[in-house]
Simulated assay, not measured.
Amino acid sequence: MSNRTDTERFLRVTLELVVEVTDTASLRETALADLRLRQPELAEFEEQHDQITADETGASALRWLISPEAVLGLVDRIEEIDPVEAMLEISESEGLLEPIDE
Rank of each mutant, 00 (worst) to 15 (best):
V13Q: 10
L72W: 01
E89W: 11
L62I: 00
T22G: 12
E56T: 07
L97Y: 06
E20I: 05
E79W: 13
P83Q: 02
R77P: 06
S26F: 08
L37S: 11
I100V: 12
E16W: 08
V18P: 08
L17P: 09
L62P: 03
T7E: 08
M1D: 14
Q51L: 04
D50S: 01
T14Q: 14
S91A: 15
S26C: 09
I100A: 13
T7C: 05
A86V: 08
E47C: 04
L96P: 05
L15M: 11
L11H: 11
L62G: 04
E85L: 12
E85P: 10
D23P: 08
T22P: 08
A43D: 10
A33T: 07
D55S: 02
R9E: 12
L27Q: 09
V18T: 14
L37H: 07
A70E: 06
E89C: 12
G73V: 00
L62K: 03
D6N: 14
M87P: 03
S67T: 07
G95K: 00
S60T: 00
D55N: 03
T14D: 14
A86Q: 05
T53L: 01
D34G: 07
G95H: 03
I81P: 05
E44P: 00
A31G: 02
E46W: 02
E44D: 05
F10E: 08
L17R: 13
E102C: 10
R4S: 15
D34K: 10
R12V: 13
R12L: 14
L42K: 03
A31R: 02
P40Y: 01
I90M: 11
V71N: 06
W64N: 02
E85D: 15
R77W: 11
I90F: 07
D101V: 10
E85N: 14
L96H: 09
D76N: 02
E20D: 09
L88G: 05
A54T: 00
Q48A: 00
I100T: 11
L96K: 08
E69A: 09
E79G: 14
A61I: 07
M87K: 09
E46G: 01
E20R: 10
E56C: 01
I52S: 00
L65S: 02
T57W: 07
P68H: 02
E94W: 12
S67H: 05
A54D: 02
L27W: 11
V13K: 12
P99W: 06
L62M: 06
M87I: 08
L35K: 01
E46M: 02
T57S: 13
S67D: 07
L74G: 02
V84M: 13
L62F: 04
A43C: 03
D76P: 00
